[in-house]
Design a protein around this nucleic acid. Structure first.
Lengths: 195, 195
DNA sequence: AGGATTGCATAGCGAGCGTTACGTTATGCT
DNA sequence: AGCATAACGTAACGCTCGCTATGCAATCCT
């Protein structure tokens, strides 16, 4: 029943594939470059992962899962403002971390629109809870706000991919925070014009 | 001195190339698809435009020029807030215009980082003028704000490319406006938004 | 008209793409 | 040991890539 054991660690090879797709994108990553980076011959790759497309799906699912872990942890913070700030801050650092490719695979790759929308959905759910909690003003367009945040994350990823530093990307994150509606009890810090 | 006249309009062919690169990106656009769309044989294309890379440079420069025209016109509006609102609004509509590809070539294509930075620079210059005019609060980080705005534009382009409607992209633009610091004499709530 | 010049169309170049056929090697079961 | 099984390495498939050599067609100049 048993044959020759596989000479590579499937999980390690998959992680290497993630890195390649992350760094170069789906189209620009060739099977030859994958086999070289993974240290696996083409037939072994096809036996273990199907074909390039299914390998990409598995790789992007892995990436998505670990990304969502960090996001979900941030979304558990007590206020929506804290949660969003944490997500943006984490993203800025992750997108410019030394040793990993710049930017974010999920936010950059054209074929991962569904994952992006799933991310947006999770953020929106948290924002809606915040509205119910009185943490965000009633009437807050959580759909708009979540779409905005994903757009900002995307822009941050792009900035990192263009060679932006951690500080550059953090500046975007910081600036975006001003777009969050202040909680109902917060004061208006523009002193000159009481309406 | 003179030979057979060329059987196609160079400008029209270039515009078609712009459309192809815009729709599919540089890497995903093949010379074969270009010649087919432009109605020009490969040798004619190479004679008229050099090679694929130089054709792309010419096409992207054309795209960049016409984009900057709209941006510069918006930047002439009286206040920075008006100018930014106009840019975002224009972008949202342009990115989802029927008959043209979704999104924005300059904001999407990885190789056009220099153009993106040039765009950011123009916006920053306008913001600095606004600070001098008292139109934006003194101490406003115009570098951060301009980077933020380009990030948002990029996110808008990505949203459009993922199939987002004009309303979806406009919502991002609208939400982003809240991140602009209010002018010293302005009221507290955000009344101004992209029209 | 005749030569020079230039663009055209066809057809093909070498290289790289994603993928697989083929023969070999290493394992577990009997 | 000997067989079935499964992964291995090599080498190649058909195809598309960006690009060009070759020969024909259309123009201007004399």
């Amino acid at each position: 029943m048993a044959g020759r054991p596989r000479s590579f660690d499937r999980d390690v090879a998959l992680a290497t594939a993630v890195e390649q797709f992350w760094r170069h994108g789906y189209e620009e990553t060739s099977v030859a470059s994958l086999t070289a980076a993974m240290g696996v011959s083409p037939p072994s790759l096809y036996a273990a992962f199907g074909d390039k497309h299914r390998l990409f799906e598995e790789a992007s699912a892995t990436y998505f899962r670990s990304t969502c872990e960090a996001v979900d942890r941030a979304l558990e913070l007590p206020t929506a403002r804290d949660a969003v700030a944490r997500i943006l801050d984490d993203a800025a650092r992750a997108h410019t971390r030394a040793g990993t490719p710049s930017g974010c695979l999920m936010l950059t790759e054209p074929r991962l629109a569904a994952q992006r929308d799933e991310l947006r959905r999770r953020i929106q759910d948290r924002l809606e809870r915040a509205v119910e909690d009185g943490d965000l003003p009633p009437g807050t367009r959580t759909d708009h706000l979540s779409a905005f945040l994903v757009a900002v994350l995307r822009g941050m990823s792009g900035c990192a991919r263009d060679g932006g530093s951690t500080e550059d990307v953090l500046a975007i994150a910081h600036t975006a925070m001003a777009a969050l509606p202040s909680s109902p009890g917060a004061e208006c810090d523009d002193a000159s014009a009481p309406r």
